[in-house]
């Protein structure tokens, strides 16, 4: 798919929504929605995406859309998909329809993990997309289990004693792959073609699929609006956010940086890591780099590289 062709495809998510200038999620979801060939029904967890796209009586959605609560997008959409299977089996509906659940990393990694695990394990034919901006951004930038180590958030504020979030993010994509679903992948809004291709594969499989897509939050990351795509690109180039897929249990890298950048290069672009560049935090910075390197090595092994 060439970018000009992608731009010509009809948009299911319109402009005029109320996301911040420079917000990452609209880019992410537009690409994913464009990859669906069939009509779609979208379910969405509570969060920025739902709040900014559906303020009554307006909606940015040209397709069927439902929001019910925060932790249950996967369960809600699994009910919709079950309804579809039932009505289709009864001959009451003939059309092919794709089902998508969107959640931020708060709604996916944390409060919605049980609901997501259940839906994946039951084998519903739906695509779950985590638009991962590495924190609870809608409620004002709190840490999630997807927030990088060292990040300044409002619940892990960088202070004189504690230098931001103490823990590394958990590896949710691997957790989803461990559900033995037909397709799980990690993607980034910066690599639109890779994301588009992965979304295509996710819609094509006969069963559940999971996409974990890095989507910049310019407020939470403290980046300039015009740097949104670059900030996500940096995470890929320094191996903080490797792009890979797990297809029928087979792990495969889909992008390998020619020469990985130091993590510090990516962090320097963002205000949330500013404190890590103080002399007293240099050891922490090194430790983060070490962890990223170890994770990358492990991923290379998993991918047979």
């Amino acid at each position: 798919m060439a970018l000009p062709d992608l731009a010509k495809k009809p948009q299911r998510f319109t402009g005029g929504h109320r996301a911040c200038a420079g917000c990452g999620f609209p880019i992410t979801i537009k690409i994913i929605l464009q990859a669906a060939e069939n009509p779609v029904v979208v379910g969405c967890a509570t969060g920025c995406m739902e709040v900014t796209s559906t303020i009554y009586p307006y909606t940015a959605w040209r397709c069927s859309f439902i929001h019910t609560a925060f932790e249950n997008a996967a369960a809600t959409v699994s009910g919709i998909e079950a309804a579809y299977r039932s009505l289709r089996r009864q001959g009451k509906i003939q059309q092919d329809i794709d089902f998508i659940a969107f959640g931020g990393d708060g709604g996916t990694y944390d409060i919605g993990l049980q609901s997501l695990s259940g839906a994946m394990e039951r084998g519903h034919k739906l695509v779950y997309v985590c638009y991962n901006n590495q924190g609870y951004m809608n409620t004002g930038i709190q840490r999630s289990s997807a927030t990088p180590r060292g990040a300044n958030t409002t619940t892990t504020p960088a202070g004189t004693q504690l230098p931001g979030k103490p823990q590394h993010p958990k590896d949710l994509t691997a957790i989803m792959a461990a559900h033995d679903i037909p397709y799980a992948a990690q993607a980034s809004m910066s690599h639109w073609n890779d994301l588009y291709r992965k979304a295509k594969k996710a819609f094509a499989v006969d069963g559940p699929a999971f996409l974990n897509v890095l989507s910049t939050c310019r407020l939470g990351w403290a980046t300039a609006p015009e740097d949104t795509v670059d900030a996500a690109e940096g995470a890929v180039q320094c191996n903080v956010w490797p792009l890979y897929e797990v297809e029928q249990g087979k792990w495969k890298l889909t992008f390998k940086p020619k020469k990985p950048l130091p993590v510090a290069d990516w962090m320097k672009q963002q205000g949330r890591f500013k404190h890590l560049f103080r002399a007293d935090n240099s050891q922490l910075l090194e430790s983060i780099q070490q962890q990223v390197d170890e994770n990358w090595q492990r991923l290379l092994e998993r991918c047979g590289e």
Partner: peptide
């Protein structure tokens, strides 16, 4: 749908009923 909790039971039921 043999859900993994009652929260999901009601969520899936809402989704299914809203689906038609």
């Amino acid at each position: 749908v043999a859900v993994e909790s009652e929260h999901s039971a009601m969520s899936a039921t809402v989704g299914a009923a809203a689906a038609g």
